[in-house]
Amino acid sequence: MRLSHWSYAVVVGLCLGAAGSKALAAGPPLAPDMVNALESLQQRLQDDGASQDEIDDAKAAARRLQGGNAADRWARALFLQLAATGEARRGRDGAAADLYRQARRIDGVDGDSRRRWLDQEARLRLRAGQTAQGAELLGEWIERHGGDRDSLWLMAQAQATLEHWSQAANWVDRARRAGGMNDTRRALAASVYQHAERYEAALGLLDTALEGKGDDPDAWRRAAALAQRMQRPGLAAALWEAGWRRGALQGREALEQLIRLHVAGGTPARAAEYLQAAFEDGTLPRDVEHQRRLAEAWTAARAHREALSAWRTLAEQTRAAEDWRQLGELAYGWGEWSTAVEALREAREQGADPARTWLLEGVSLLELSREEDARQAFEAARDAGASQAEDWLASLDAD
């Protein structure tokens, strides 16, 4: 799940700055010439907008100090931090994160600096698209040092990007307790709860106007329509589901829309379950249109047994070559070889492409260890123009 409207804010400050002496005092005392070198490089980075020369100078200084005494190690960490600041300012977030990692792992670095650089590295990795690594580091920082509300929301966003819905929902819970809710975060939280199938929690995020009109069907329709305009079909499905469960949305038209929204919103299994129940209680007819919708919903949900059964029922209703072919190709792709053979034959008899249906039937028969039947199918496929059939026949001859 890409949440492109969010940004991973990173505050990249120089280690000296207005806090100059305080920052330097966090580590071992440095020689005056080392302090001058750090302050000079910091000033150049500020004046030149972090040019490549200044960044290279900071890295070179850090390399020269490698393996020194405690003061050298502290100065090395500060030079690495300066280089990281420069890389981040130039938009090279991954490189900046690597430098912060080096700096915070140097022996003798004080705890406050380690904490600050861990936070910086985590946010830079998130901004660089290294979401899994950034989320791990940010979680480590929060658990060690306690996160503010912005960090908690950032963690929820990262878990949502990774599509770890249960974990994202837990982080949303923590972030909501910390406060700082706004429209963007409310949309994130609602989307996370919907994917985690926590529909009541998603419902709780509706605005005051909607909550005040909980039995008004037009209010629920407007909310779902807004979610669709925001290109959030999952949220639209969650809103419609909540209105349906509350009883505000009723009737066949509302049920049809609920089914369509679940398919569009990435929860096709729910759509199929509603269709199946509607067939059984007579709310919707089991006609060709609705049977096709059921088959497509189970297919999108990758529910093999239910999808193949639904496509078979549809094909028997329509006797159409395309429906038999769809059943045959799905069965072939899912390794249901007997069903594939039967459906592909029916499809061919109804006018489907003989070259492809013979070829797939041959492979299916071979998987069923019916080699002579497979040979005949491959020969028919070859005669119908399937170029791959020759390779299969050659393989059989070699065996």
Rank of each mutant, 00 (worst) to 15 (best):
R101E: 15
D107W: 06
G212M: 09
D98Y: 02
G146T: 04
A190E: 13
E87S: 01
G180P: 08
G147R: 02
D110V: 10
K213L: 12
L118Q: 13
D119W: 15
D207I: 09
D119R: 14
E87V: 00
G214D: 10
V192R: 06
L205M: 12
A169H: 02
A202P: 00
D98I: 03
Q159D: 04
R149W: 04
A202L: 15
G139A: 12
R104Q: 14
R125H: 09
Y193Q: 06
E197F: 15
Y193K: 05
R149D: 10
V109T: 12
R149N: 10
R101K: 15
E87T: 00
A190F: 04
R92F: 02
L138M: 11
E197H: 15
G111T: 05
A103N: 06
R123T: 06
R89Q: 10
D107C: 03
A190M: 15
D93K: 02
I106D: 00
T184Q: 14
L137A: 14
E136A: 15
T208C: 02
L154M: 13
D183V: 09
D150E: 15
Y199R: 08
G129V: 08
T131A: 11
D148L: 05
Q102N: 13
R185S: 06
G212L: 09
A158E: 03
R114C: 05
E140T: 12
A187R: 08
A97T: 10
A187K: 05
Q157D: 10
A135K: 11
L99Q: 11
D148I: 05
G180Y: 10
R127Y: 08
R127G: 06
R105I: 04
A132K: 09
Y199C: 01
G129T: 08
R89D: 03
D215T: 12
A169F: 04
Y100H: 10
D183P: 07
L188T: 07
A160D: 03
E140D: 13
D112C: 00
R186I: 13
A175S: 11
Y193N: 08
S191V: 00
G179C: 01
R116A: 12
E121P: 08
G212D: 11
N182C: 14
R174P: 00
V172T: 02
I142W: 09
G94W: 04
D183F: 01
Q157F: 01
R89P: 00
